[in-house]
Amino acid sequence: MDAIILDNVSKFYGEVLGVNKVTLSIPPGITSLVGPNGSGKTTLMNLIAGLLQPTRGGISVCGLSPSDPEHFFRTLGYATQYDGFPRGLTGWEFVRNYLRLFGFSPKDTERMAWESIDRVGLREASQRKIAGFSKGMRQRIKLAQAIAHRPKVLVLDEPLNGLDPLARAETIALFRELGNEGSHVLISSHILHEVDLISDQVIMMSQGYVVAEGQIRGVRDEISEQPMQVLIRCDKPDVLASQLFHHSQVVEAKVHADRGGLLVRTHHAESFYKLLNRIALDGVRIESVAPADDDAQSIYEYLIGSEESTK
């Protein structure tokens, strides 16, 4: 009841595939939806928010269906990618008008509108017309509108686009805050290293299909055909490399340009770490050992980069 559930959801635009056979159960926390342009991220978000109706399959958000808007949209807030706004409104009027549709009292409407505008740091600019807002300000006022009614589930389509570094950091902090409060925060983004930093789990999409889902490290472990990369900082990388080549689980070893480390590719991470312990005892001083490709960027490249390159 507390998850976003997509059950075998497909959406076709005539003969064009939007998303196909998506089955997901998204738990609370921050979830990132990543994939190249046209992979179906926005379609999936629009389906979750009820702006599109699935050709097949069913969707429920915390046990509610988009066909019951009166309850559904009190639970869900959505900041879309669309850059359109009602004409002639100020930022404040935009958020207030949206809250009015909920049927709140005028006093509550005003208070909640100011709270959400304050939360995105737009109080001063909120009395100006949205037509004169910068891209970043428009993103933030959309975010204010999405969180204004304090939804349990927040769906944000490319929310970091157009934000300057400071605003981006503040917005990411806000997502963390919302995630810690127990909300669902579903974010789509192209900025993969930021996804890495903020998300509890990731959903990767390509060409309308979900190609991976789960916690980033867990997803990496599943990609068996790609050797794991391990970065080792040590004092004698050439000696270490020569010793490693005696063992079959090591596929490749590359000495760093600064000669202070080694990048190793291996098919068996666990046996490799045991081997490394033995070598360390033989006199090579190892400063650090860290996986080099269990971040979202690497997983993205493994899973989607290959598909993109085959197009």
């Binding site: 959505y78 009602p86 004409r87 549709l101």
Partner: peptide
């Protein structure tokens, strides 16, 4: 007109029956 202005979704995202 709301479709042309790309602003109809604000109505559809509110807890209001169509």
């Amino acid at each position: 007109g709301e479709m042309v202005d790309k602003s109809l979704h604000y109505y559809l995202l509110a807890p209001v029956r169509r």
